[in-house]
Design a protein around this nucleic acid. Structure first.
Lengths: 105, 105
DNA sequence: CCTTTGTGCAAGTCGTTGTTTGCACATGGT
DNA sequence: ACCATGTGCAAACAACGACTTGCACAAAGG
């Protein structure tokens, strides 16, 4: 029962981290230093957050010269959404319709 | 930016809690004592987990006589799924189609 | 009434997380 | 070569989360 779901949900449980994901989605690959500029926390803190996101597979680090650009990666979200739809299907008709969609391809 | 999303994702980040949700979905309203019987942890621990789920709005406690039956409640899942689809839309075409569904009603 | 069983509260342990500070290393431009 | 800047590593700390144990309270049934 201990999938990567743990890491994914834990990663998304922090608003700073959700913000980082959102920003990486919006603005594409960005450095930690750059991301930290827009936040009230240290670069180190940002790096830690990015590592948490990285362990969840939601973020990908790639070095380019002396910089490291972080990029958002989507795959694990599908798994998490899948779990939620699976769980919610028996309650909520709308979620169940979604589940049929995602399972039907 | 600090919605109930924090609580929802944090609640689902634990496999025991996901298991509890799954079981409540399967078997309907159940007592903490009963849930604890099937697990390697104390009733108190189960109660703590249920409280976490309760704060996320994923579970609902109702007293009946001297028992307290916990029941799964779905609404917050839709919000969380919504966030994920919103975030994932720009990457994954399948997620984007789902997002259109969930937003279209 | 008395026993059994389900529940609630409080304290205490132990590991994890978020965050900072300080310092060392690598790289690009002048 | 030199300096500015981006990065990495490690120690430290407070706060939080997961559990446990112990005890007190409430209700159902003989």
């Amino acid at each position: 029962m201990n999938d990567g779901l743990d890491a994914v949900f834990a990663a998304l449980a922090d608003p700073t981290r959700r913000g980082l994901v959102a920003r990486l989605v919006r603005e594409g690959p960005t450095t930690a230093t750059d991301l930290a500029r827009a936040l009230p926390i240290t670069r180190q803190a940002v790096v830690h957050h990015l590592q948490a996101l990285g362990e969840a597979g939601l973020v990908d680090a790639r070095r380019s010269g002396r910089e490291v650009r972080y990029r958002a990666t989507p795959e694990p979200l599908a798994e998490a959404v899948g779990w939620m739809l699976q769980a919610g299907a028996r309650w909520d008709r709308r979620l169940d319709r979604l589940r049929e969609r995602v399972e039907g391809g």
